[in-house]
């Protein structure tokens, strides 16, 4: 039993490491690929693609391990004489097989490998988790100092001139709006803003964001930022779409977005004349006014990727991980 646990632990961590390296070198992190994040694609697709990249070391490791085990154990189901080629070619190879697990190693290196990688990840996640805890308490402080809006008890108002609308916190999210925003926008716009923030609360966006953020802590910043930005954009688009259903339609939401963005513009002397900003705002408004055509053709790529991973796990990566197991165990 201990041999199975040992070999599976090494395999999952090794496959996870391979997936992590794949994300670091192939995910959309270069500037041109970041621009691709701004393309008017469906919210669901944007979210799925970014989250698939972000969580690849977890789900990728599980898929690869499952396919490796399935291939080496297939002989059990098919009742072949000996399902593990390694038995024939090299009896001393430590292979991933539930039926014939190799003997538990006499060295500590398999567990040193597993625990050192897991420790590094745990430390990175703990550091970010601690920072998020402080950030969360700062947000809660802001919400706690605010007053309740007269005709919307779930909305908190802060006495600030700067136009702001936020949803703060993940356990009990609070909607916080500044008095400056209330005073500066039309009642219809305020209705859209509140509907948008309520959508964030209803769809538990901050909770999802927290998990994504913790996962992103295992990557270098240059890799994590575009993925997180893409997920933030997807959440905003989802909240825009939900607000459009209850607060006057996509055109009203687009109008509210430009109205609030205009309020947040710096003075004329500070404004960029060349329009380098507004990337996310532009995508959100275009998505509202011209929703991307709904098609399922894009699913071909992720399905191909998963199928490819299954084949990789059962194919070239399996001997690689088995060699690693053998190397660590002797």
């Amino acid at each position: 039993m201990s041999a199975i646990v040992e070999s599976l632990s090494v395999a999952v961590v090794a496959f996870g490491l391979i997936c992590w390296l794949t994300v670091v070198f192939l995910s959309p992190s270069t500037p041109s690929r970041q621009q691709a994040n701004r393309l008017p694609i469906a919210t669901f697709r944007r979210r799925l693609v970014a989250r698939a990249w972000l969580w690849a070391p977890i789900w990728g490791a599980l898929v690869l391990t499952f396919s490796a085990l399935a291939s080496s154990s297939a002989g059990l189901v098919l009742a072949s004489a000996d399902h593990c080629l390694s038995h024939v070619t090299n009896a001393h190879t430590h292979h991933l097989c539930l039926a014939h697990p190799y003997h538990a190693s006499t060295t500590v290196w398999p567990w040193v490998f597993v625990l050192s990688i897991l420790s590094i990840l745990a430390i990175r996640v703990a550091i970010v988790g601690w920072r998020l805890r402080v950030d969360g308490r700062v947000g809660t402080s802001l919400a706690g100092l605010s007053t309740t809006m007269a005709d919307a008890p779930d909305v908190r108002v802060i006495d600030q001139v700067e136009p702001l609308a936020l949803t703060i916190g993940w356990r009990r999210p609070a909607i916080v709006i500044s008095q400056g925003l209330i005073d500066s926008v039309r009642p219809e716009t305020l209705g859209v803003v509140i509907a948008h923030e309520r959508a964030h609360v209803a769809l538990r966006h901050n909770r999802a964001g927290l998990w994504d953020r913790l996962m992103a802590s295992v990557y270098p910043r240059v890799v994590a930022e575009p993925l997180l930005a893409s997920l933030v954009l997807a959440r905003e688009q989802a909240a825009d779409a939900a607000a459009a259903k209850v607060a006057g339609g996509p055109l009203a939401v687009s109008q509210a977005l430009t109205e609030v963005a205009r309020l947040r513009m710096p003075g004329p002397q500070l404004a960029s004349a060349h329009g380098v900003g507004c990337g996310a705002l532009e995508v959100r408004i275009h998505s509202l006014l011209k929703p991307p055509a709904s098609t399922s053709r894009w699913l071909i790529l992720p399905v191909t990727v998963v199928a490819g991973l299954v084949l990789l796990g059962a194919g070239p990566l399996l001997p690689l991980v088995e060699d690693l197991l053998t190397y660590l165990a002797h």
């Binding site: 970010v128 920072r131 998020l132 950030d135 969360g136 947000g139 702001l164 609308a165 936020l166 949803t167 703060i168 916190g169 993940w170 803003v193 948008h196 923030e197 964030h200 966006h205 901050n206 964001g209 927290l210 994504d212 953020r213 992103a216 997180l228 930005a229 997920l231 933030v232 959440r235 905003e236 909240a239 977005l257 609030v260 963005a261 947040r264 996310a280 705002l281």
Partner: peptide, 12 residues
């Protein structure tokens, strides 16, 4: 942990 973490703003 920012925008993707604990809060969401109407306009970034």
């Amino acid at each position: 942990g920012g925008g993707g973490g604990l809060l969401a703003a109407f306009v970034d």
